[in-house]
Structures are given as C-alpha cells and as structure tokens.
Design a protein around this nucleic acid. Structure first.
Lengths: 145, 145
DNA sequence: GCTTGACTTAAAGTTAACTTTAAGTTGTAG
DNA sequence: CTACAACTTAAAGTTAACTTTAAGTCAAGC
C-alpha cells in the first residue's frame, strides 16, 4: 500500500506539515517520490514514522533521532550503536516513568487534600487534622503546608 | 527557615532565573520581600514551588498553573475548581503513563531486535526469523519491517 | 568602610518544533 | 479538457519556557 503525505498524516494522527518537516530534517532519507515529485509512503516509511514517533514521544530531540536514522542507513556496521541508542532511551523512559509515578503520588495527595477540604467546606480543616486521619501513603507530604 | 532565590533554586534543582521567571508570571503571588527588595522564600513558598514543579513536570502549561495558583489565592470558594484541576491533571498523568508504557514496549522490542541482529552480525537475520522464535510479547510489532 | 558574591530589574535573545504563507504543480473525477 | 483538492517548495512566523545581558543594589565578612 502506498500513501500520500496527507494519508500518512491521518494514519499517524499528526499534521502533514509535521511529516514534511521531518522529511526536510532528514528523518526519512529513503522516502521515494512519484515522477511528479509527490512523496510516496510505503510500509517501510510508515514503520520509520512509528519509531520516529516513539523516540519523539519519549523525549528524544529531532537532532538525536536523525543521528539514529543515519546509523540505520549505514547498515550492519552500526548495529552496536543503534542498540546502545535504543537501550539508553529505554533507560530514559524508565526514569521518566519513575518520575511520573512520584508526580502521580503528589497529585493523589492533593486530590485527597481537596476532597477532604470540600467535604468540610474549608481548607482550614487541614490545620487541625490528626496524622492518624491521614492515609498512610500521604504521610510523606505532611509538614508541607 | 528563610531562603534566598539562589538557595531555593539549589534545593529544587532549578535555575534561579527560572524561579524569578515564575514569580514574574505570577506563580508566587504571596512571596514576600526583604526591606531591601530580596525575595524571601518561606516553607509555604517552597511548597508552592513543589506543586508548581509537579504540575509543570506533568505537562501543564505555565498559564494553566497560574490559573490554579489564582484559584488557591481566592480561598475556600474555589475548592471545587482546584479539586477539578488536580483530578483532571491526575487523569492526564494516567494517560501519559499508559502512553509511556506503550512506547516502552516498542523500545523493548527494538532492543530485542538489535540484540538479535548483533548476535547474528546482521539485521538480515530478521528476514528469515520464524514467528515462534519471536517472544510472544513482541508479536504485535511483527509485519512492521 | 570596603570588598565581594548574590541579589534586583527590564529587555532582549535563544531554542525546539513546528505552522503558516504564498505561489505554483500534480493527479484524478467528471 | 477542466476543475479542484491535495500536493510541492522556500521562507517567514509562532509559541513556550526559559536564559542572558547590562546596569545597578544589597548584605555579610573583614
């Protein structure tokens, strides 16, 4: 199956101008054109876009994604480098998920804080709340007014 | 305990100019100054910075953080609104973590892909690999060259 | 009192990642 | 053959979130 830039954009839920921008930045070096100059997206190109999307969504800058794509073009001599890049990104994702988990715990506490305040009709309820009335998992956030 | 902007910055591991920028944008409306005009960060201000950091790290734009801070200043009449904002952000975090998980699975596959290629010395090994040699969890990524 | 490092401000500069614009071309349906 | 939506490009514009600069002020130690 062959797609135009608009069809590819619709499939990946991004703007066509974004895909053209990626192409201009060299992220799609193997993308072919029709005789008239139209971009022709094949399955391989859609797969490239998916890994680009994955790296982008996990916080890799376009420049670094280009570096990865470049090492893909270079073939089997760069397998080690590509593996190192992906492993490093996976570790970055692990750190991001840990960070996200911590942020979620703080938001869980804030939710409980406002639910309690809402039930009491005032935030002042937290000034005289006893530690044993605070769920165990939120104790880390006490002494933080 | 009272901190200067530099001390506060060191504690939260951000640049002092960032904290000054947040102040300029109205995120620290209760921050007091010394007689000489220096910012004085009290525990309350440090807590404000921590919730600002939490909202920022979970993707909330400065404008929306200001809206939240504004509703904190307005007192008990805005408890419902504040709860709604925090709940919505918590749901956003849940969606982000699900997305992150999907991205991680793709990176896990790519790691396996390059580990296998590295062992074989060539990516061509994947052209003739049998589906039963591909771990179950990676089957979703097959037919994606 | 003096030095020095950290602070103050307003204003300008930076960066990434797009998005928009304008002018023109392609491909397809009727 | 014509219309028209979707494509093409280069170049300029946008946005968020800072960061830097320049010129000056504050506070603590000697």
């Amino acid at each position: 199956m062959i797609y135009t830039v608009g069809e590819a954009a619709r499939q990946l839920n991004v703007a066509a101008s974004t895909i053209r921008y990626y192409d201009k930045e060299g992220l799609l070096p193997l993308l072919e054109r029709s005789s008239g100059g139209m971009r022709m997206f094949r399955d391989d190109d859609m797969s490239s876009l998916k890994i680009i999307e994955c790296l982008k969504k996990t916080g890799m800058p376009i420049k670094d994604i280009k570096h990865f794509i470049d090492s893909c073009i270079e073939g089997d001599s760069k397998i080690d480098e590509r593996l190192a890049i992906i492993e490093s990104q996976r570790e970055s994702v692990n750190r991001q998920m840990e960070e996200m988990q911590k942020m979620k715990e703080m938001l869980d506490y804030k939710c409980w804080y406002y639910e309690t305040a809402k039930a009491a009709g005032t935030c002042a309820v937290h000034d005289q709340i006893k530690p044993e009335d605070v769920p165990e998992k939120f104790h880390q956030f006490l002494n933080q007014p």
